[in-house]
Design a binder for these strands. Structure first.
Lengths: 256, 256
DNA sequence: CGTAAGATTGACAAGCGTCAAATACAGTGG
DNA sequence: CCACTGTATTTGACGCTTGTCAATCTTACG
């Protein structure tokens, strides 16, 4: 059995529904209902496609181990990396209202994920309305995080965008753990960085080099150590948002 | 009583829940449940703030008339316009999981909106799980539209971004009406265009000028006529996405 | 160990931001 | 209805950030 370093992408595979738990305290019945959602578990090797743009939409995927990149393309073929997903994230949501998947899910590391049929999601909304409402809130949270990406792209230069990306990934891999994560492992090519930040490969290289020279972070292979987090925050100027835990508008938990 | 031109922002105020209807055929009971959501109606004059960033989160807003811009800011004060909302849109969603609102809603025209307490939304999820699931799907749709904005910002130049914005607004104001909308009314300053597209006021002016000289659209005051839609589409290269109407994964409608 | 994929570097050009000045516009009060 | 005043738009000049091209070097992996 493999030892998981803190900050390793699979570190917290023990709490698969942590995105829910971050918003509410789950009852036993609710946890059981969530655990019953997946119809199968799937493992993919690095580089494999979990689901392709254009595939019929029938499932979501709960990522339990590893990292996945979601990308989409315009009709002229231009692709952009939309988000790097970490364990606990539910993948495939944006495609839900559409006939064909709007995003490609590609494994950035070896991964483990649980496949969730949309049918089961529909049944969950009926049997556990409170979980449906929380899931709704999670989707809105993703929307806000994307909105922050839009702001980062629209208003900052390359270095600020890179700072924002690194801080965001650091934060999400930490998963609320207050003790500093010493370093994070990112198996991203410069091309992938560029696709995320709207930069060319060449400029990504330049910016990464400069930031290391300025002592903002250090890098050994694929491990990034954020040395100067205040400095990165000064660059990225991220908005501080506080989740509203156990909000009073949720319907009561169903104990069935 | 005021006559509404086609393409006027209030044109389809008659079908306030059209975002739902675009995904499913509503039953009478469901329509009644939706109609019962608002606790009051509010009118704002152009320029007024519907809700400010940082305000406590307690409500959503169904826009029935006029246009609203949602914007957000970084901790350094930089603001970006996130989206232009048209009638039928439900405002304030992204703030749902947070303690304080993450986005400012500002009226771009005189508007009418219905205020929906979150408490009522929670009750709706319990009483009408199918509507909860559809609302979930609508949130995911918004997420995809934001993702397309990210792509537009990351991968295209100023003119393509402007083309994308104009086509998107045209499409959404049309509201699925197959007959061409001759022109759309946009009360946006160049500053607002710039905030939406990540451009400076000066460059917005240049790009708008060039696009008119090239015959892509014509402009009279605040009315934009998209003269060369194929040309705009060639520039913007939007992804074509087809909604999945009445998907089979939804729970059955509740007739109570 | 060999090969292909990725990263880096330099030179150059293009797109866009900034500054500043001139012009047009919209809302106000007379 | 018109003059007035602040606000929005346009235009030009200039410089910086970033993209592109091409060559070289490094790393990953069979």
């Amino acid at each position: 059995m493999d030892r998981l370093l803190p900050g390793s992408p699979g570190a917290a595979g023990a709490r698969p529904w942590r995105r829910f738990e971050r918003l509410v305290d789950l009852t036993e019945a609710e946890r059981a209902a969530l655990d019953a959602l997946p119809d199968r578990e799937l493992s993919c090797r690095r580089g494999q496609i979990v689901r392709n743009e254009g595939d019929p939409v029938g499932h979501l995927y709960l990522l339990t181990r590893g990292m996945v990149g979601s990308s989409a393309s315009f009709s002229n073929g231009d692709r952009t990396q939309l988000k790097i997903h970490v364990p606990g994230d539910i993948l495939g949501g944006p495609s839900v209202p559409f006939r064909d998947a709007t995003e490609t899910l590609a494994a950035l590391t070896d991964i483990v994920a649980s496949r969730i049929p949309l049918r089961a999601v529909g049944e969950l909304f009926a049997a556990h309305p409170r979980l449906g409402a929380v899931w709704f809130a999670i989707a809105q949270q993703e929307r806000t995080m994307l909105a922050m990406r839009v702001m980062s792209l629209a208003r900052s230069d390359a270095m600020s965008r890179m700072a924002y990306l690194l801080l965001d990934l650091h934060e999400r891999l930490r998963d609320g753990d207050p003790q500093r994560l010493p370093s994070i492992e990112l198996r991203l090519t410069n091309q992938a960085f560029g696709d995320l930040l709207g930069l060319s490969v060449v400029h990504v290289s330049r910016v990464l080099g400069r930031m290391q020279r300025e002592g903002l972070f250090a890098r050994d292979r694929h491990r990034f150590a954020l040395l100067d987090i205040p400095g990165l925050e000064r660059l990225a100027a991220p908005a501080r948002m506080v989740l509203n835990r156990n909000p009073n508008w949720l319907p009561p938990a169903n104990e069935s």
